[in-house]
Deep mutational scan, measured.
Amino acid sequence: MAAGGDHGSPDSYRSPLASRYASPEMCFVFSDRYKFRTWRQLWLWLAEAEQTLGLPITDEQIQEMKSNLENIDFKMAAEEEKRLRHDVMAHVHTFGHCCPKAAGIIHLGATSCYVGDNTDLIILRNALDLLLPKLARVISRLADFAKERASLPTLGFTHFQPAQLTTVGKRCCLWIQDLCMDLQNLKRVRDDLRFRGVKGTTGTQASFLQLFEGDDHKVEQLDKMVTEKAGFKRAFIITGQTYTRKVDIEVLSVLASLGASVHKICTDIRLLANLKEMEEPFEKQQIGSSAMPYKRNPMRSERCCSLARHLMTLVMDPLQTASVQWFERTLDDSANRRICLAEAFLTADTILNTLQNISEGLVVYPKVIERRIRQELPFMATENIIMAMVKAGGSRQDCHEKIRVLSQQAASVVKQEGGDNDLIERIQVDAYFSPIHSQLDHLLDPSSFTGRASQQVQRFLEEEVYPLLKPYESVMKVKAELCL
């Protein structure tokens, strides 16, 4: 049975990233139509530049190519590739079939990587351009969430054990800070992308030097003109047959890092959902379990974690691919890159769409948070109580021993009897502590235990987050809708 299948058929496997999760716009960027249309555009740009620099290419040939950029006979191309065992030459023939007058000058002087690699770089750039505003929107939604809850005390956790208090907004800023680093890295790697350009079979530009009869300047002009037509500021000066596969490492490393950030955020949300302090959106008709109707599973956060793990592992592909590119190139890269580049971007696209949807509907339960604080705060307040007693004339050592005994009794009630923490009640009825009984409410005010959390939130948002989001103001209103 021949390899390949009808990918629109229910009898043929289709990647869930495309069929179930990723956005239509990201799927289109990695589609065959987008790819092969870009090949034709690159052939047109090459012909236009070659004509401008004096090669015998007519206006009629150029116009014929322009008129057929979208006229792609995919069936013919597939048949040609089956016959020739070469995808680029299959599309040269297919393009030439609908451009008979231009057929002889299509791909003039070029090698397969002229269309293959340059198209990949265009796709990487455009895919990054799709991700950047999506990530900015996630940051914006979380920034709104953090600002609104900047002063809401909550129990902090280290080692997932109760620690000092923080605020809900401050905790959210930990998430935002990681995503801001990801946004900066995505922008950097996007701006650092260079075009492969017009380089020939081993990167020496020998074929173009021959076409222009040894004119170095025209060869350099050709490279520059096509690079500018493709919208790049610069091209690699040095290439082998391909652009260095280190570029793929750079791009997928940034995406993998984004995956790590999203995994951490969504894990926190899942843990908070278990504590009943916070939940992701839950639709009115949504079913959490087929057997347990009360369940409210954090399905979206779980999906993000599941896909983020996949995204983090994909960076190993370009690392290994770059390491086995012998001399000017081997074909070890080809099949692998067809999979890992598309999957990385479709996965990143999915987790950003999902995280935006989550961040637009996060639900906080202040009463649950308050109750958990009441359970733990008495123990945390013991040092403040000791200091207040010393100020009232008591002995630190005597007070410490009193607190120690009462704390152990209260802990026994919590752990052995399943009761509430009654340390404060014990202190309130103990005559030894009568000098500070009137101060206990103040000493137990949760806001006095959150330090500068709310001020940190305000400063972080104003100095770091809002300036970073400013270039994306025009796209901030787009909502994230999930079908599944």
Rank of each mutant, 00 (worst) to 15 (best):
Q61E: 09
G393N: 08
P281M: 10
S23T: 04
L341T: 14
A388G: 08
T267S: 14
R245G: 01
P162V: 05
T354V: 15
G361Y: 07
A102W: 01
K187F: 08
E277D: 02
P318W: 04
D120S: 06
Q439N: 11
C483L: 09
N185K: 10
L174S: 11
H400D: 02
L484W: 15
K134S: 13
T450G: 09
V405W: 15
N353R: 15
C399S: 12
I403K: 06
F28A: 08
K66G: 11
P471I: 15
I386M: 00
N126V: 11
L183S: 09
I369K: 00
E417D: 10
V405E: 11
K276V: 02
D223R: 02
R459D: 09
A77L: 15
N421M: 08
M76G: 12
T58C: 13
R404W: 09
V368A: 04
R270C: 00
R309E: 05
M387V: 11
R141P: 15
Q428L: 12
M26K: 01
D120T: 07
Y466P: 05
S323C: 07
N71T: 10
D332Q: 02
I427A: 04
E464I: 07
Q439E: 15
R14Y: 15
Y114L: 04
L482R: 01
L121H: 04
R337Y: 02
G104Q: 12
L135N: 05
M316F: 08
Q184M: 13
I72E: 09
F208H: 06
A49K: 03
K199C: 08
V315F: 12
M312K: 05
P24V: 10
L258Q: 06
R303G: 01
Q205D: 00
Q161Y: 00
L84I: 04
Y34F: 13
Q439C: 13
M476G: 15
V198G: 08
K402D: 06
E343G: 12
T267E: 03
P298Y: 01
A335H: 00
L275I: 10
Q41E: 12
E79I: 12
N185V: 05
C113G: 12
G54H: 12
M312V: 08
F212D: 04
S334L: 04
R171Y: 02
M476P: 15
L179S: 05
V92S: 07
R125V: 08
H159A: 02
D223L: 06
L275H: 13
N384R: 05
L46T: 01
A110T: 09
M312L: 11
D398I: 13
E228Q: 15
T38S: 06
R149E: 12
H97I: 14
M181Y: 09
D268Y: 00
N71V: 10
V364F: 07
P281K: 03
H93S: 14
F212K: 04
E70H: 14
S412G: 11
R196L: 13
R303M: 03
I62A: 03
R149L: 08
L142A: 04
L186E: 03
T204C: 08
K147S: 11
E80F: 06
